[in-house]
């Protein structure tokens, strides 16, 4: 079983620990605030009251053997930096750290954090994007590579994928088409189900109301944004 350490049981840290356990992973949750430890000790398998800014404590808790650690310290930037450094010294292969802002994030990257996350900022970015571009979703797959979901533009409808030349024109590969299947309910109300065609055939004809899911370099994203 894969094992993980979650350091700091604020809302973000607790949510991470909860999801890892739900997915069948083993978590040691470390928190120095006794009241938070009490709040979560009945929920999580292993919650320990300890100061993670001590290499001795981390060693004793077996943190050097975990597959990955998540550092989710509220406002104490110094503690989050020190703990990240200690985790890297202990040889934890993957250290993910919640940052307060860009400066904090830069320091974390410089001392070896494998991934720095800005949860509030990331969610705000997603919501702003959804508000600006309804029907448009973007997910970063790897640096410089994204999965996009776009509403099929009018110029695409009625044409088979092979004629759209999406690969040559947009440097993108279509991996799925989401299609609405309209029906009437027993109460005679209109509704629809969504069907996913994956992978689509080159002959698949794009219909009005389809959504197209594609993989493309981040540099191609602007070509798709706002297409109607």
């Amino acid at each position: 079983m894969r094992s993980f350490a979650v350091i700091g049981l604020g809302r973000f840290g607790a949510a991470i620990a909860r999801y890892i356990e739900e997915e069948g992973g083993e978590v040691v949750a470390i928190e120095k605030d006794a009241s938070k430890v009490r709040d979560y000790e009945s929920e999580f398998t292993s919650v320990v009251e300890a100061d993670a800014a001590s290499i001795k404590s981390l060693r004793e808790l077996g943190v050097s053997d975990v597959d990955a650690a998540v550092v989710s310290i509220g406002t104490d930037m110094a503690a989050s930096i020190l703990i990240t450094l200690l985790l890297k010294e202990l040889g934890v292969p993957l250290v993910i750290v919640k940052a307060q802002g860009p400066l904090h994030g830069n320091v974390l990257k410089k001392i070896g954090a494998n991934r720095v996350v800005y949860p509030e900022n990331d969610i705000a970015k997603d919501i702003a994007r959804q508000l600006m571009w309804p029907g448009y979703n973007e997910l970063e797959l790897a640096p410089g590579l994204v999965i996009l979901e776009i509403s099929a533009p009018r110029a695409f409808t009625g044409k088979p994928l092979k004629k759209l030349k999406i690969r040559s024109a947009y440097s993108a590969n279509v991996i799925a088409v989401k299609r609405k299947e309209p029906f009437l309910t027993e109460e005679n109300q209109t509704d629809y189900k969504e069907k996913v065609i994956a992978p689509p055939d080159p002959e698949t004809v794009i219909e009005s109301g389809d959504s197209i899911i594609l993989v493309c370099p981040a540099s191609s994203v602007d070509k798709f944004r706002g297409m109607k």
């Binding site: 029907g135 509403s151 099929a152 609405k180 309209p182 109300q189 209109t190 509704d191 629809y192 009005s208 109301g209 959504s211």
Partner: peptide, 11 residues
């Protein structure tokens, strides 16, 4: 409601 669903149909 029916208009809403039809509008959704066109994204």
């Amino acid at each position: 409601y029916s208009l809403g669903v039809a509008l959704e149909g066109t994204n």
